[in-house]
C-alpha cells in the first residue's frame, strides 16, 4: 500500500509542535498518558467564538504517537468545539494506517482532544459563573 506523501510528512516533520500559555482563558489543555508504553501527550487548543483557531502539542513517545498528535492538531484547526468532539481515534488509525500494535497511540490522541476540550469548557463555565458568584457574595 502506498502511503501518501502528506501522511508520511506527519512522521518526518510533525506540525504544530509547541505550547500556549496554559493559564490563558482562551486555551484548553489536555495532558494524557498511555500506561502500556509510558507515552505522554500534551495537546492544547486556542478558541475564539467557539471555533478552534490554533492547536499545538508536545508528545513524548514513539513516532506513531507523535504523528497521531500532529494529525490531530491539523484536524482541530478551524473546527467548531462541537465538530472537534466528533473526532474519533479510528479516523486517525485510518488516516495514518496504524497497525494493531499502535492503535493505542490514536486512542491517546483522542483522549488528549477530549481532555483539552473539557479543560477549555471548564474554564469557560467557571468564567461565566464567577461574576454570578461575585454578585452573590457581595
Amino acid at each position: 500500500m502506498a502511503y501518501s506523501e502528506k501522511v508520511i510528512d506527519h512522521y518526518n516533520n510533525p506540525r504544530n509542535v509547541g505550547s500556549f500559555q496554559k493559564d490563558a482563558e482562551d486555551v484548553g489543555t489536555g495532558i494524557v498518558g498511555a500506561p502500556e508504553c509510558g507515552d505522554v501527550m500534551k495537546l492544547q487548543i486556542k478558541v475564539e467564538n467557539d471555533t478552534i483557531v490554533d492547536a499545538k502539542f508536545k508528545t513524548f513517545g514513539c513516532g506513531s504517537a507523535i504523528a497521531s498528535s500532529s494529525l490531530a492538531t491539523e484536524w482541530l484547526k478551524g473546527k467548531s468545539l462541537e465538530e472537534a468532539q466528533k473526532i474519533k481515534n479510528t479516523d486517525i488509525v485510518q488516516e495514518l494506517n496504524l497497525p494493531p500494535v499502535k492503535i493505542h497511540c490514536s486512542v491517546l490522541a483522542e483522549d488528549a482532544i477530549k481532555a483539552a476540550l473539557g479543560d477549555y469548557q471548564k474554564k469557560a463555565t467557571d468564567k461565566k459563573s464567577k461574576p454570578a458568584e461575585a454578585a452573590a457574595s457581595s
Binding site: Y3, Y11, C62, G63, S64, N97, L98, P99, K102
Partner: peptide, 12 residues
C-alpha cells in the same frame, strides 16, 4: 518486528 507507518519497526 513489522514495519509500521513512518518507517518505524515495532517489535513482536
Amino acid at each position: 518486528g513489522i514495519e509500521t507507518m513512518g518507517g518505524v519497526m515495532s517489535a513482536l
